[in-house]
Structure formats: structure tokens, C-alpha cells
């Protein structure tokens, strides 16, 4: 019992160390999945293990690379085993414990069950939970690691999913130049300050600081891609009003997470800004009410805005060895 109370308080210490000051309370607080260093490491091992895919060729990290904010840079849509392609741009894994739904359509309702999707999806890892568990159960290395985290060698779906969550839930990016500026550790350039002002006026209502996202599902008016025919949230609710609605992604580390949008249709930030300022049809049905008012930015202002967006890059996060492939 004494040991138990100690481990509990150290768990709380780990979590509170992770949460940046003045940020909102995370949605997921590892309530039934006590965060531990061993659990985090086990989750990291699983995240980087290619044996989770059916043909043992790809790991989670194939579509979620650390250096690019845990997304697949330069790939419009996710690539699975045998060169199979999905229909959506692989999302970044940043500050996930503040999300109340996952995937572009918000179809996943809890961080712990998220990883079942890429494991089972035919265009991703195309595996079964049974296969994955039997692989893990046969491994003496994993048996040892699971017992360090959970107290015995039983490897169950729940433990497997919770271990991955210990890793993905710990991917917190909060030390960008923007954060340092907020903490008054550095100064912004005049251009960055102008960009911040423009951001607050035009973008922050959806991409809300400090997380630079929102948990809403919104239509940003993009016309449907006729190859993918992806109606977004509609596929979950089958409600007309949810057509073309997608989660509002975080802009943290946006500099390195291209291409942009749910289907990766834009390669450059300036194309995204051009879309919002020039191409967006404000009469689009079910358009987010926050986009009804036209955003107008002259070319200098567009440059200022981009200068600000680049301050959201968090090099410490992108190159933190703790999140990297665990080299022995």
C-alpha cells in the first residue's frame, strides 16, 4: 500500500510536469492509465515497431515522423503496407490529450482506442488485434516490459492500447518561439508581432491559442475532392449538415507539417492563405459561421502572417530524443 501511494504521487508529478502553465485542463488525464516512465517507454517501443503491421513493413512512425510534427511530410494522403494509399492526410500527433475526438472526421471518441484504426485499416497496417497480441505475447522482451508497467506478464488489448497512449499522449509541444515570447523569454521581430496581430484578428477564433486548434468539426468551404469523395463528418453522423466538416487541426509546427488540409491538397502555406483570402466561397452550404466574413490580407500582411506561423515551430519537440526511435 505504501508503494502504491508513492507511485501515485510520482504519476501526478509526471503529468503536472508535462502540462504547460496557464494551459487549459487536458481532456485526457491518464485517469485509468497511470502514467509512468516504463509505460511511456513501452508505448514508444510499440510506436516504432514494424511488427504491428501485417507484413511487418511499417510502424506508426512511417506516417507519423517526429521531425515533421509526427505527420508524413510531402505525402498528400497516408501510405500503408504494399504501397496502398488512404484518402486522408495523416494528422499530426501533437498535444493529443486536449482533443476530445480523433481523426479528421472526429469518429474516434477516446485517445486509448485511436490506434486500433491504423492497425486494422486495409490501406494502413492491415493487421488484426489478435495477430498483434499474439506477436507481443510470444516476445519475452515485451513480456518483461509489460510486467514492469502493469505488474505481471499478461499482455491484453487494453494494456497494449494504454501503453501506446502513454507515448502518444506525452507528445506535448509547448516550447516554440511563440511560447517563449509569451513567457517573455524572447522578443518577436516587428514582422512577427504584426503577424500575431493579424492572426488574432483573422484565425484565432478557430485555431485558438495556446493549442491553435479547436475540438469543433467545421467546414472551411473546400470543394470536395472528386477522387476521394470524402464527406468528412457526414460519414460518421450521416447528417447533411455535417457534410465536408473536419476537425480543426492544430497549427503548431505548421512550418514542417506540409502538405496541408485533410487531403493534403496544398503544399505551401501561401497557398493556404490564398485559399482563405481569395478562393473561399463564403456562400458554401454549412460553412463555418466564423468564415462567413471574408478575410482580406494584402500581400505584405500575408507575409507577416506567415512569419508569425513560423514562430509555432518547436524545435525542442521535433528533435527531442525522448520521442525518437529508441536506439539501444
Amino acid at each position: 500500500m505504501i508503494l502504491f501511494s508513492f507511485s501515485k504521487s510520482s504519476k501526478e508529478a509526471i503529468l503536472s510536469d508535462m502540462i504547460p502553465k496557464k494551459w487549459p485542463e487536458p481532456v485526457y488525464q491518464f485517469e485509468n492509465n497511470p502514467l509512468s516512465e516504463e509505460g511511456f517507454r513501452l508505448g514508444r517501443d510499440l510506436f516504432y515497431d514494424v511488427n504491428l503491421s501485417r507484413d511487418k513493413s511499417i510502424s506508426c512512425a512511417n506516417c507519423h515522423l517526429q521531425y515533421t510534427g509526427f505527420t508524413h511530410v510531402d505525402h498528400k494522403v497516408s501510405h500503408g503496407i504494399e504501397g496502398r494509399k488512404g484518402t486522408r492526410n495523416s494528422p499530426v500527433l501533437i498535444n493529443l490529450i486536449w482533443n476530445n475526438s480523433f481523426h479528421w472526421d472526429g469518429g474516434v471518441n477516446h485517445i486509448e482506442v485511436q490506434s486500433i484504426n491504423p492497425i486494422k485499416h486495409p490501406a494502413e497496417m492491415d493487421n488484426t488485434l489478435k495477430n498483434v497480441l499474439s506477436y507481443l505475447q510470444k516476445s519475452s522482451n515485451y513480456k518483461m516490459k509489460f510486467s514492469r508497467v502493469f505488474g505481471d506478464t499478461i499482455i491484453s488489448t487494453k494494456r497494449f492500447l494504454q501503453a501506446i497512449t502513454q507515448f502518444t499522449g506525452s507528445l506535448i509541444s509547448s516550447n516554440s518561439r511563440y511560447d517563449q515570447y509569451q513567457r517573455k523569454e524572447i522578443e518577436f521581430s516587428i514582422q512577427e508581432k504584426k503577424g500575431l496581430k493579424l492572426f488574432k484578428k483573422n484565425c484565432n477564433s478557430c485555431h485558438t491559442a495556446p493549442l491553435f486548434n479547436s475540438n469543433n468539426l467545421e467546414s472551411n468551404g473546400l470543394p470536395i475532392d472528386t477522387i476521394f469523395n470524402d464527406l468528412g463528418r457526414y460519414t460518421i453522423t450521416q447528417l447533411k449538415k455535417d457534410s465536408m466538416k473536419f476537425r480543426v487541426p492544430t497549427l503548431r509546427n505548421i512550418e514542417v507539417t506540409f502538405p496541408y488540409m485533410h487531403d493534403g491538397r496544398y503544399k505551401k502555406l501561401r497557398e493556404v492563405i490564398k485559399y482563405y483570402t481569395e478562393e473561399l466561397n463564403t456562400k458554401t452550404t454549412y460553412l463555418s459561421p466564423r468564415l462567413k466574413r471574408k478575410i482580406s490580407l494584402n500581400s505584405n500582411e500575408q507575409k507577416d502572417l506567415i512569419a508569425f506561423l513560423l514562430t509555432l515551430t518547436d524545435k525542442e519537440f521535433l528533435y527531442n530524443k525522448r520521442f525518437s526511435f529508441p536506439r539501444k
Binding site: 469518429g107 474516434v108 471518441n109 477516446h110 482506442v113 486500433i116 489478435k130 488489448t157 492500447l161
Partner: peptide, 14 residues
Amino acid sequence: LDPIKGMYWAWNSG
């Protein structure tokens, strides 16, 4: 309730 039982939808949790 283990999702391995084949009674769980992953893409639309439930």
C-alpha cells in the same frame, strides 16, 4: 468488452 472480440467499431468508436 475487449475490442478483440470483434464487436467493436474502430473508425466510428463504439
